[in-house]
Write a protein that binds this DNA or RNA. Sequence first.
DNA 1: CTGACTATACTGTATATACAACCTTATACA
DNA 2: TGTATAAGGTTGTATATACAGTATAGTCAG
Lengths: 243, 243
Amino acid sequence: MSDAQPLYAKVKDHILENIRSGAWEAGRRVPSENELVESFGISRMTANRALRELTSEGFLSRVPGVGTFVKEAPALSSLMELRNIAEEIAQRGHRYSSRLIRKGVIDSNPALAEEFEDRGIKQLFHIVIVHEENGVPVQLEDRHVNPAVAPNFLEHDFTETTPTAVLLAATPVDELEHTVEATLPSTEQQRLLGIAALEPCLALYRRSWSRGKVATVVTLTYPASRYALYSRHRTSARGTFSQ
Amino acid sequence: MSDAQPLYAKVKDHILENIRSGAWEAGRRVPSENELVESFGISRMTANRALRELTSEGFLSRVPGVGTFVKEAPALSSLMELRNIAEEIAQRGHRYSSRLIRKGVIDSNPALAEEFEDRGIKQLFHIVIVHEENGVPVQLEDRHVNPAVAPNFLEHDFTETTPTAVLLAATPVDELEHTVEATLPSTEQQRLLGIAALEPCLALYRRSWSRGKVATVVTLTYPASRYALYSRHRTSARGTFSQ
DNA sequence: CTGACTATACTGTATATACAACCTTATACA
DNA sequence: TGTATAAGGTTGTATATACAGTATAGTCAG
């Protein structure tokens, strides 16, 4: 006993566990406040708090006079934050897997040197990975890494930890640059992602800086039918929006 | 006046107003629950709810035994800064123009009510505009606006000022949600943007909140060949990296 | 002066109760 | 058959009360 956990938190965990495990699929009705009162032996206000917080957190939706329901969880990737796609998928209660297509050292060239803002750079690490959700490819990662920033990068086996996780653990990120565009996939991309020629894709190009150097340059390609980029954040309470 | 607003919401608004106006700067102590009880003539649970929600929304921080304080404003990550496309184009030294395709009031429906998080909403403002750079369409804007937030919205002639500028001037923006996906254009989009059927497009879906209400929902469609989304920003010491 | 104790203020949680608004379903009635 | 009404379940809000845990300021004994 003595979980030292508040009652409303236990109720929230119980509901979240059912959602995460897939036992309660989207749209399903969750127990009403009065049903929670009976099954947990708590007061209605405590049940109300649990359901209300889960609603504001985006897991449930409530309709007065009708009930509370599991909300649709869209397949979304966060746009501005560096998140680990494996965690993201796991968080949705789905199975993550990956296929390592390429891993090695390549010689630099003028275009790459430009991207890394380092004329003298000689060699780069290069990996290509297909990330899968429930066995379906959802992201093609084509990444170059600056050996000066993460010299041990290639020592990792990327089946267990994603490159994002490795880099985040190895180096601080000072600055990020993103470019997002829509593309039609190349034949190789079609093959690796298992999509048709006419399926549009999102291409997210990202450079990240660490201690003043470009640490990594990556292009992430998402099939439009399987993934969208998402961000939601609060803006400063004081007027950051000039004009 | 007197929107028949719940008591806890009035308290939240009062506090937010003080934060927004700058009257209460970061770190400043806000009234304790018992002080709110006295000044608003409410029960402590109601004051507690107001402060608790503002805390979970990131505006306040609370320390048991000490008090409640205004939180530091987090740095805005900025791919998604609300920028005025007219200014953006002017900044590049190009000529901005626009074509107003539609402007009027439409009846709500369940899908729109859901997007606006207001089941009772009856009517919405709706505009469609094509933005052009040097006479070439670069963005199709399809926007719905909540009349409760910007009642004078339709009074503007959008040839001189863009809807974004109008809304920014009229209301504070508390929160932004973005979804980006790749699409192939519908026939109407092809016609309005003057593009081929096989040209992929970026669809940027954005909702913005003002004083707790969804103020506007907009879908911006960019032809991939003419526009990409770009951002670059420093990451703050903390934050930015969720989990 | 220092350390232990106490009083006080504040947040955190939990309950019991109440009323309003909303929705669905069953029932009664025309 | 169609319509109005009633009943019951559901969420939304608000109050009064209680107790626990935490931090601070002040008091008192050593």
